[in-house]
């Protein structure tokens, strides 16, 4: 009886074990980006802009041309790349410490100008690479190395909801928040990525996809309970859904 391979790593993924911790969702996010690029036939025309954070080594795992941007400045670098190479597909891959804190100005203005780039934003509510410090997206009550008693709303403010901010800007063409905690949500995430990438290919405008993901190491949890935390604590505060889609009239 013959059998066929129904699931394998996409060819664009370099065959090398990742440096990520067990249960880290960066691996899933990388694979989804790789799959969508492959399916859309963009592999040879893609310029990836890496950011600072755990995902800094994305060029070791995705076989595309890459530029490494200074901390938070990936949307600015991507703007330059896209304006100089209009025929290329340009995307940035950023974490929440990079995008929501240090690079807040860059992302907001790139979105507001409606740059024809795509942004993959992986939100795990901490600064992962530097050792679990409090990020703008850290939930109230969540413990981190710089707020060992938990984030206090009076002192540190509430967690910032990036998709709502980006979705409210004029230049944004597509903005959606997805999660990587279950098979259903992962499938949904892939569709969202494809939609955001299509916005760039069609020249419609800026595409933004926020992915809720886990950081078991810095949350001091095992991978399975960290995955459950996304469902139980993160999704209620960071609601999933489409925040802007210019191709759908009047349904925003």
């Amino acid at each position: 009886m013959s059998e066929k391979l129904v699931f394998d790593a996409p060819e664009i993924m370099i065959d090398r074990p990742t440096h990520y911790c067990p249960g880290c969702h960066h691996g899933v996010a990388h694979r989804l980006v790789g799959e969508v690029l492959t399916e859309m036939g963009l592999v040879d025309d893609t310029l990836c802009v890496g950011s600072i954070g755990c995902s800094v080594f994305i060029y070791n795992y995705l076989d595309v041309d890459a530029v490494e941007a200074p901390h938070g400045r990936a949307p600015a670098v991507a703007t330059g790349l896209k304006r100089a190479h209009k025929d290329k597909f340009v995307f940035t891959y950023q974490g929440d410490g990079d995008l929501a804190s240090i690079g807040l100005a860059e992302i907001v203005h790139a979105a507001n100008r409606g740059e024809k780039i795509s942004v993959v934003f992986v939100n795990n509510t901490v600064y992962g690479m530097t050792g679990g410090q409090m990020a703008p997206t850290t939930l109230v009550g969540q413990k981190s190395t710089t707020c060992p008693d938990g984030r206090c709303a009076d002192e540190h403010g509430q967690a910032i909801r990036m998709s709502e901010i980006i979705g409210g800007l004029g230049g944004t063409a597509y903005c959606e928040r997805v999660s990587l905690d279950s098979v259903k949500n992962i499938r949904r995430a892939k569709k969202a990525l494809r939609k955001a990438f299509e916005m760039q290919i069609n020249g419609t405008g800026f595409g933004f996809v926020e992915m809720l993901s886990a950081c078991p190491t810095n949350w001091k949890m095992d991978p399975v309970s960290a995955n459950t935390r996304i469902t139980e604590e993160m999704i209620p505060y960071f609601p999933l859904g489409v925040f802007k889609d210019v191709t759908k009239d009047g349904e925003e």
Binding site: E3, L5, D8, P17, Y20, V28, S182
Partner: peptide, 21 residues
Amino acid sequence: TGCTSCALICPDLVIKVYREE
């Protein structure tokens, strides 16, 4: 059953799924 759920959630591309033709 070859549903590929495990492969979809695996962060480390460990799993290959085969289904009968």
